[in-house]
Design a protein around this nucleic acid. Structure first.
Lengths: 300, 300
DNA sequence: AGGTACTGTTGAGTATTGTTAAAGTGATGA
DNA sequence: TCATCACTTTAACAATACTCAACAGTACCT
């Protein structure tokens, strides 16, 4: 790909301007004067031989045709900024960085992290909960806890555990709907859905469990849809309805009595959770210890 | 994210240098002199307060610690270059751009494209076969033909058709292995696998079909694994073994007698193929006609 | 209408970046 | 061992980008 990029400073001005829709704001963000931005934008129009900005009252805006171009440019600068955060991570005092799916971190890892910290005096761990997978390059300084096939894009991955799912509700809800204990009636109760997003199509939903038991799918629409399991479980705990919960995410709340398991029947998640890491990760001692610890934890 | 980027020209020099491992080559690529590159690299080291290059004999190289940083920076510049190709597409004389999964384009779209070109005199169409999904921003000037949930990241999507799969082999192979006509013996025959990659976990494989018919999974390892269905079908046509083929991809070769369907039993693909497009796409007449045509084709 | 407050543009002077050419630096070979 | 080569670095001039200050257009208020 031998395409000559336009002058980079001009691109940066364009990116900032397009995002903020203001020459002044862009100037402030880039730490230059508005005049400089104005000149750079003109320069870029000149280089690309197409108009990019139009005046809308006293403001200036992107022309519609430049919108998609800007989107890709903005993406590129995002990556460049990401690279800076990677450096910041490398140079930080943190011993172990762990990125993971939000609920996996908060409901599975967090509760047992004490045991690791107790055994490793003075170790500092940073947890980062994100839905989207990080750049593989980040894995040189970071573990990633994720689900299923997403792990395959990373240099190294080992399965942690394969979870099971079953329906749960709140004690309070069970009082109002005692029929919930009869699996055949679950299809008609209010329920809470968990949406894993388009990339995870094989994850069991309430419908999956019902069909596995030979019952019809839910007759109502979900009373709420959550992108986080933990948020869905909160909704269930507050009595909003039933949901198909994962054992490892619900176990704390089950122990506390905030949630009740309505059926002993469970469906298995089709794929395990994984821990992933990069090639330079195991050269340091503390990450190595962490990996061994977490693999042992998962086998219990 | 309020992180100050380093001087961009320095980043660009770093990106180019890191990729080419040579100051001279980087200078040539960026159309400047080696001295400028050298100075910019020093500037970047200065800005980041960390060493980036080391001398390896008379060459200069990246220090290992900078490798992952470089990977992300390079990704960012790739995006910026992509943006240029997007502009090039916008300004090109092509009426209709179609990006799609390779085999879907070559085996399904290509054969019926004549009928569209015949009906639309003088229309120019460009086909681009890629496995990876394009930036959503590209969809403002491009259709994308893809499979299943991948379609959900794009602004608009309509299902085309839901394919079915069944085992096929070459006539020649059938002569050598007449037992192939007995489904129960398929598990023990040489076979060819199609690997859709980590993002498509629900796609049927030979194993899926066998299990659906109540037979054991393949007893041997696949004699070859292909990332393209079309390449797998070529291997099968050359007599390498059997494979689970999709009706729409195999139909031409079945008609020509290059492939033979060994069983009438078929498994359905769990998700349909989709055609996807962006918001500004249907403002032009020719893309609108194309969309209508392709949706009609798919219903046949 | 006219004043005021914003926002963006323009042009000449200053600072930063790239060029040119000469000087290091390690590998290679007679 | 010294000349030579391939490559990179350094330092003084030329080109590019930024600042500053004055200007021009638009909105809003009285």
């Amino acid at each position: 790909m031998r395409s000559n990029l336009p002058p980079l400073r001009a691109l940066q001005a364009f990116e900032s301007f397009g995002r903020l829709s203001s020459v002044n704001a862009a100037a402030q963000e880039l730490g230059v004067t508005p005049g400089a931005i104005s000149q750079q934008l003109k320069l870029l129009e000149d280089h690309l031989q197409m108009p990019l900005i139009m005046k809308d009252g006293r403001r200036a805006r992107l022309v519609p045709k430049a919108r998609s171009y800007h989107a890709v440019i903005a993406d590129g600068f995002d990556k460049l900024r990401q690279a800076q955060t990677l450096l910041a991570q490398q140079n930080s005092e943190i011993d172990i960085n762990v990125s993971g799916l939000p609920t996996l971190l908060s409901k599975w890892l967090q509760p047992r992290l004490q045991s690791f910290e107790a055994a490793n005096e003075g170790v500092s761990i940073r947890l980062e909960a994100t839905h989207g997978e990080p750049e593989p390059a980040f894995l040189d300084h970071m573990f990633r806890l994720t689900y299923g096939a997403a792990s395959e894009v990373f240099p190294h991955a080992r399965p942690l555990f394969q979870d099971v799912c079953f329906p749960v509700c709140a004690p309070d809800f069970l009082k109002r709907h005692p029929e919930a204990l009869d699996p055949a009636s679950l299809s008609d109760l209010p329920w809470v859905d968990i949406d894993w997003g388009p990339h995870y199509t094989t994850v069991p939903k309430l419908r999956t469990w019902l069909e596995a038991q030979g019952f019809p799918p839910p007759s109502r629409k979900p009373s709420s849809i959550h992108s986080l399991s933990s948020s869905a479980l909160e909704a269930v705990a507050s009595g909003q309805g039933i949901a198909l919960a994962q054992l490892s995410f619900a176990s704390v709340d089950l122990g506390l009595g905030r949630l009740i398991r309505i059926s002993q029947e469970a469906v298995k998640m089709p794929e395990p959770y994984y821990i992933c890491w990069g090639s330079m990760m195991l050269e340091q001692e503390k990450p190595r210890d962490f990996l061994n610890w977490i693999l042992a934890e998962a086998k219990i």
